[in-house]
Design a binder for these strands. Structure first.
Lengths: 243, 243
DNA sequence: TTTAGTAAGTGTACAATTTACAATAAGGTA
DNA sequence: TACCTTATTGTAAATTGTACACTTACTAAA
């Protein structure tokens, strides 16, 4: 099974740690073959070429599995990146050449974003170091990966406003304060606690459990679950573009 | 300037005629070179390969211009179609072979949808007949074009719910009943006329004109315009996924 | 065991929006 | 002039949005 050497996927993997939104980045360090000097070092998103007989969704799930060991992760295609010059910055050309690839071949990359609650992650991938970096601390990335990241954030924001995907960034059981925090971080805003809860109380698909937080140095909060089943059954389509 | 022979764009061009949502389709008829017999005839969406140095957005605008002569059309990338078997139905292979193309090369296609008010359209494109077909009357299309069409409709519905793109399907000046009809058709629902107008009256970016319809056999309706400028200035981001 | 610290949980009044519902007005056409 | 067609408009009740502050339940430290 060969590789399709002109299509790739790039995954923006978001992980929420109850405080910040993080993104999984991979170190990219190019060293001179002879002297061993470090020529440059920076970061990339996580991506892969796809196999010839593979769907792009599969390729994206594969990346995700290799990195996190997780299979059932929220993953969504959001945009294609295909600018003719997207791989043509000097460092990027050098890196591709070093890797035995032709930097003049136009590569179309399909952007995906994934959502998960931060957990332990395989800390190596193809011999490169992988780490969580807070979204706001991400500097200049390799290739067009800053553009892909911004596209992912925008897609995440838009989707979050209209569909219940915030839950994907939390563990199965979570508190209302954690849920509120997710939305505040993604939408870059703050909500009134009482009003947020009043709104939330109307959502039939947010199931209160008979369980509480443990081990916290304050009144323990009740735990909730999201039920996609109830959501699908009770959701109404409606019309809200105005405002 | 060569062609990238593995990337293409497919455009779902929606046209509204105040009654129905239509899609621009192109006839595809394969005739036997020797006998002249018609081997099969069906329809495709409108698509194109992209040039090597061209962005995909440019390629999509090019398709649109060739077909409609229009330059400033609402156009949006919505999904990529890349299934390994997407061009492998027997008729499709035959068509590609006849056209001198290799049906075994995997072609990634970027799906776009365009919105416009139905107007005169160039009725020929590369020697093939082009016509508006009401969305609900579209049967089986070539390649994976039914899938692309459904993807486009879904993207159109979603976007319509949250952003003011319904206007793109109307002429510059339109009546409130026409606007209501656009939304009813896209969202496949019906609105109460008084409540619809009450809601609409709150949108500052819907500008009432001192002009009325002419030539209609009933009380002429006032004309309105959409101001994207006012919309951008007054829009608030908010949060409505729950229902 | 007492105290301090921390986040959880809760109600009310007012404003804005949604919803359901039907009669009159203004043009053309016969 | 009568008729046909679509445009235009209001009101009351229910729901939702908004602004705002105190009490509760737990841990940790004294």
């Amino acid at each position: 099974m060969g590789l399709s050497n002109y299509i790739s996927v790039d995954c923006v993997i978001f992980g929420f740690d109850f405080e910040k939104l993080n993104v999984l980045l991979v170190d990219r360090t190019l060293t001179d073959n002879e002297t061993g000097d470090v020529l440059f070092t920076d970061h990339t998103l996580t991506g892969n070429h796809i196999y010839e007989d593979e769907t792009i969704e599969n390729a994206a799930h594969r990346v995700l599995f290799e990195l996190t060991g997780l299979q059932n992760v929220y993953l969504e295609q959001f945009k294609i990146f295909a600018h003719p010059d997207r791989l043509k910055k000097p460092n990027d050309r050098q890196w591709l050449l070093h890797d035995g690839r032709n930097p003049d071949v136009r590569i179309v990359s399909v952007g995906f974003f994934a959502l998960l609650s931060v957990r332990d992650v395989t800390l190596e991938w193809k011999g490169r170091t992988v780490k969580w970096v807070p979204y706001h601390e991400i500097g200049e990335l390799a290739f067009d990966h800053n553009e892909i990241l911004e596209g992912a954030i925008e897609a995440l924001r838009n989707k979050t406003k209209h569909e219940p995907i915030g839950f994907e960034l939390l563990p199965e059981k979570f508190t209302l304060s954690q849920l509120q925090k997710v939305y505040e971080i993604i939408l870059d805003t703050e909500f009134d606690k009482r009003n947020f809860r009043k709104k939330v109380a109307r959502m039939k698909y947010l199931i209160p459990l008979d369980e509480k937080q443990t081990g916290v140095a304050h009144k323990p909060a009740r735990l909730y679950m999201f039920s996609r089943e109830v959501y699908e059954k009770t959701r109404k389509d409606f019309f809200d573009f105005w405002v």
